[in-house]
Amino acid sequence: MHKSVCRSALISSSFLLLLLSCEEGLRENPAGEKAREDPVIAAVNYPLAYFAKRLADGFATVLFDIPAGQDPAFWEPSDQQVTSIQKADLILLNGANYAKWTATRTLPYEATVVTSSSFENQLIRLKDSISHKHKKGSESHSHEGLAFTTWLDLKQASAQASAVALALTEQFPRHKTTLMNRLQDLQKDLKALDVAMKAAASKLRPATVITSHPVYHYWSRAYDLVTPSLLWEPGNEITPQDMAALANIRKTHPDARVFIWESTPLGRNVELLREAGLISIVISPCANQPAEGDFLSVMRNNIAALEASGN
């Protein structure tokens, strides 16, 4: 009896020691190494990174390294950054020629997913470009682009989230149920935002809303608003030439009372617009990671700002 107890104790303590040594081994393994073992999903803008994070949290790492303050649409990656993106298991593209760097860099074709493919035929073509020729007799062409802030139409954002989920399901089939459940939750959130945005926008109609930058095409189409745009930066002081351009727009849209900025403008700019009879509000496209909150909270802030201006 005594012998068998001793043997059991010896076996138990050996097993415990083995377990402890395994745990020690895990502790010695740097966290970064574990992260590297996880599948990686790269995204070209924050909304897609947010969708990927919500859908694949726990079994994949999201790679979105665009510095704060930079517009992902015009970001230019270094060779090292492209190399990191090339190693990703999935690369989420926005489509609509967004993130021009993707056209000039080498990306693994099979890992890329264009998330706006399902509404490709509804993309807005910008018409204010100039055609040109290089040689006499050669065909003329223009470098006209597509409006690319697709996710500001929250129905389109929902379609993009579905495309992300579908790509993730193909890549990680064993997480299919989790992905579908999470997609359902995400789409519920986006639908609620869409309904709230519609209600807030309806309060502004039929008046025109002037925007500081031409990034609200899909937003104005989805929420039935007229949004002539300027090319103003929130951080630059408004010049007399800018005011002349604004006056030109107001000649054709005298009913405009609200002016939309992409981010918080200079106080002086707000003052100048107030003197001109316009209320400044911020509708953030949220293309890059916000300093606080997430995609949903930024959209809620946008809706709140719209509602406040409509009252």
Partner: peptide, 12 residues
Amino acid sequence: GNVIRANSSVVE
């Protein structure tokens, strides 16, 4: 007025 022809001085 909406078509520009670049002459040979455009650097490619």
